[in-house]
């Protein structure tokens, strides 16, 4: 039990003294989650919008697949992405194994189903009168889509926050694809895994608290944006 309190004290110390190892892991997490969020939002919001807004043949099957992918285990994604990025893999030439962009690719696969599914749900849940209203006011086709997207911004924000939570807390992809290389690809979560493996529970708790603090800041901002 002592290590919980010890962890709290250590967390404060690490942050206040500007411990370079801790901050390196914090920045790695922030950077890699920034890449993966940018990619998954850029792909997932249009995809989710398409899935939620349009009717097409096979839509329910696509939905089923997306909902199933929500349960993709991170270690499986890690393994698959490793297989592709490994020097012996088809994309080995890109030299992305053991790099932050490599991790970001894996995390994008992790976040994409979340963004797609929640965006689709948000778009589906929007008032059916919205479309009619916008057309009667004279929108063009493009303006129609953009305005619907803007009306659904709160739902999309929630989707992004959920995906961000998944991305920052995963270990499997970061460990498999990133390799937990100090100063380079060691993220908050792989650092926690390492410290715990080394039996340094207090350090693990400390890093966990820092991660929670980041999550809090993100959700706090979302909370403010959501206050209509």
């Amino acid at each position: 039990m002592d290590f919980l309190l010890g962890g709290f004290v250590t967390a404060i110390q690490l942050l206040l003294t500007g411990d370079s190892e801790t901050y390196s892991a914090v920045f790695a997490t922030v950077r890699v989650s920034g890449y993966s969020m940018a990619a998954s939002l850029a792909l997932g919001v249009p995809g989710g919008f398409f899935l939620g807004h349009f009717d097409f043949r096979g839509k329910r099957q696509v939905r089923l697949v997306v909902d199933t992918l929500l349960a993709l285990p991170t270690v499986l994604i890690g393994l698959l992405v490793y297989a592709f990025l490994s020097q012996r893999g088809p994309l080995g030439e890109w030299g992305l194994l053991f790099t932050l962009p490599g991790i970001a690719i894996g995390q994008t696969f992790l976040a994409l189903p979340v963004v797609v599914a929640l965006t689709a749900t948000a778009v589906e849940a929007m008032d059916r009168h919205l479309r009619t209203t916008l057309i009667t006011l004279g929108v063009s086709r493009t303006q129609l889509l953009l305005s619907i997207l803007w009306e659904g911004r709160l739902g999309i924000l929630a989707a992004a926050a959920t995906a961000y939570g998944r991305v920052t807390t995963e270990v499997g992809v970061s460990m498999m694809v990133g390799g937990n290389i100090k100063w380079l690809t060691r993220t908050m979560t792989t650092a926690i895994a390492l410290e715990t493996n080394k039996g340094q529970f207090a350090m693990g708790v400390a890093l966990g608290l820092v991660l929670m603090a980041i999550a809090f800041v993100v959700n706090f901002s979302v909370f403010f944006l959501r206050r209509r």
């Binding site: 008032d127 009168h129 009619t132 009667t136 063009s140």
Partner: peptide, 19 residues
Amino acid sequence: FSDAVRFQVTLLTQEPYLM
């Protein structure tokens, strides 16, 4: 969406939606 009517015609639906 045709330009001939887009800005000429408007409808107030029974349950209007406020953005």
